[in-house]
Design a binder for these strands. Structure first.
Length: 452
DNA sequence: CTGGGGATGGGGCCC
DNA sequence: GGGGCCCCATCCCCA
């Protein structure tokens, strides 16, 4: 006989124990803030903790202390609450940090929920836009003095779509709670906050708009910073707080904290929310560009096309679907990968790296330094006493020479190698390939690094 | 320390 | 809607 509520009660009991600091044998320090938890619960919930704690299984008498600096305490609180309750308090403001932290902690359930959340945000975004439209129509009917907000070329869809936009998360029962914690009224309120913060900023040009985004793009920068971190080796909080920004942007940031990081998000009655939104929209209508139809759910950026929004969202999600086959570095766009491959691995620029003179296939040679390739004129090559590279080796690591071939290579090779694979086959030697048909100048001397 | 150049990333927009 | 091109901003490294 199976008692279905047993698991729930067990988790509830564990959560109570955690809150009362009973039997907690693990301390987690996140940016100085201490969280207490049970090792076995963390072990069962996170791949990171599983690895970490399995290493110290023998030393179970001492409490484990784990320190994190790569995400904020608020984010970890959301995750810890999920571990102990099955409820994930996702909001538009915290989803980026949560997905980043969940990735770090190897918690795939949360990752899936976050991905679905982001995906559905597009629908929510659309839904809200339609909501704005209906509100606008309503306000114009009652207040003829205000111009309509949008002149949509699309048919306004029925409100039924709102409910259908909620993602299907049957696999994870906790997600229902998660979605409920991110109620539509809350999302609308976030939009209202955004509208408020944008008030008074006439978007006369896109560039100015980008500047105005300022801190709101701190979350845009998150993946980029993380990427930079690959070089510096420093882990940073995804949405690091930055002081000294313009006041309007700070307002947005504050809004994020108010609605995003509260453990128990404030739920404002829908009527009040709608009223506030109507008020905001009536004041901001003249500043809205009618042609920008898709708003990013995570920042104030708006684009005309859904495809552009999809592309933009990658800077929030950190998704980098295009890995370089040579060095494993990942890119958000294929064109960026192509540029990278051509400049770094194929010496695409016909300029001598050292003296900057123009070279051709005949007057220059290609130098390989690790995975990087660049061209040198013969004079600079002679001065630097470079070694040459046999053609077969070059062919092995750069099987394409023309742009057309390269493109066909990118297009044809669907399956991407893993980073480990690409790293394993990286040629970490320094070699030169003659392109003028001269015999290869074999030798073992290495080119001095960083020829810039 | 600083300026310049390269690499990278993001937005607009055309095809 | 995707691919691709162009442009620009930012970061990083080096002289």
């Amino acid at each position: 006989m199976e008692i279905s509520s047993h698991q729930f009660h067990l988790l509830e009991q564990l959560n109570e124990q955690r809150k009362q600091d009973l039997f907690c044998d693990c301390k987690i320090l996140v940016e100085g803030k201490v969280f207490k938890a049970h090792r076995n619960v963390l072990f069962a919930s996170s791949g990171y903790f599983k690895m970490l704690l399995s290493q110290g299984l023998k030393e179970t008498t001492q409490p484990t202390v784990v320190t994190f600096e790569v995400f904020s305490p608020e984010t970890f609180m959301v995750i810890l609450d999920f571990v102990y309750s099955g409820v994930l308090s996702l909001t538009g403001q915290n989803v980026i940090e949560v997905i980043s932290a969940a990735s770090y902690l190897q918690m795939t359930d949360i990752l899936h929920v976050c991905k679905t959340f982001i995906k559905s945000s597009l629908d929510i975004n659309e839904k809200e836009k339609d909501h704005y439209l209906s509100l606008s129509a309503k306000s114009t009917s009652t207040e003829p003095a205000h111009p309509p907000l949008y002149h949509s070329r699309r048919k306004a869809k029925s409100n039924l779509r709102c409910s259908s936009s909620v993602p299907d998360e049957k696999a994870n029962p906790a997600n229902e709670n998660a979605w409920s914690s991110c109620s539509s009224s809350q999302v609308i309120l976030q939009r209202a906050e955004t509208q408020l913060s944008k008030r008074g900023r006439k978007q006369s040009s896109v560039r100015r708009h980008r500047k105005l985004l300022g801190l709101s793009q701190s979350c845009d920068l998150a993946p980029r910073k993380a990427n930079r971190g690959e070089r510096s080796g420093a882990g940073g909080t995804a949405a690091a707080s930055q002081d000294g920004e313009e006041p309007g942007v700070d307002a947005e940031n504050d809004a994020g904290h108010e609605y995003g990081y509260n453990r128990e998000p404030e739920v404002i009655p829908k009527k009040q929310a709608v009223a506030q939104l109507e008020q905001d929209l009536s004041r901001t209508a003249e500043y809205e560009l009618p042609q920008t139809r898709f708003k990013c759910p995570f920042c104030t950026h708006a684009v005309k096309r859904r495809a552009d929004l999809k592309r933009h969202l990658r800077c929030h999600t950190g998704e980098r679907p295009y890995p370089c086959k040579e060095c494993g570095k990942r890119f958000t766009r294929l064109e960026h990968l192509r540029n990278h491959f051509q400049t770094i691995h194929q010496a695409g620029k016909l300029i001598c790296r050292k003296c900057k003179c123009q070279v051709t296939e005949l007057t220059g040679c290609v130098v390989q330094q690790g995975t990087r390739r660049y061209r040198l004129c013969h004079q600079c090559q002679g001065e630097a006493n470079f070694d040459s590279i046999p053609d077969d080796l070059d062919a092995e690591h750069s099987p394409v020479s023309s742009l057309a071939n390269k493109r066909s290579r990118w297009a044809l090779e669907g399956g991407q190698k893993s980073d480990e694979e690409t790293m394993e086959e990286e040629p970490y030697n320094l070699v030169v390939r003659r392109v003028n048909g001269d015999g290869p100048d074999r030798g073992d001397e290495k080119v001095k690094p960083n020829l810039r």
